[in-house]
Amino acid sequence: MKTCLVVDDSRVIRKITCRILKELAFHTVEADNGEEALVLCRRNMPDVILLDWNLPHMSGVEFVRSVRAEKNGSVPVVLFCTTENDVSHISEALGAGADEYIMKPFDKSIIEAKFSEVGLM
């Protein structure tokens, strides 16, 4: 079973996302900020990271750069999942090392479509 780390400061969003991921047969891990997420990655690099843009302490983009700089940092597929929906944000995220971008609001069909896009399903 693949592991997906969900990084979002909203508990509700994490809950909804994790429910969808479990239906898609992923094991889920949660963090509400980038620093905590980074600690989790160092301990056990996940297969997938779903990540909000605006996070306390460290932004989503800073987090991606940090993850990509880790020893196994190229392993996880990183997908942003955010309300920051304009081209400049999307380009910045891809430039920082994200693989895909989900624009909120999303639903299960979009997660499925994006996951198959990056070869996770």
Partner: peptide, 10 residues
């Protein structure tokens, strides 16, 4: 979002 990779969208 259903079917287009983000790079293709851009």
């Amino acid at each position: 979002q259903r079917g287009l990779p983000i790079r293709r969208l851009l």
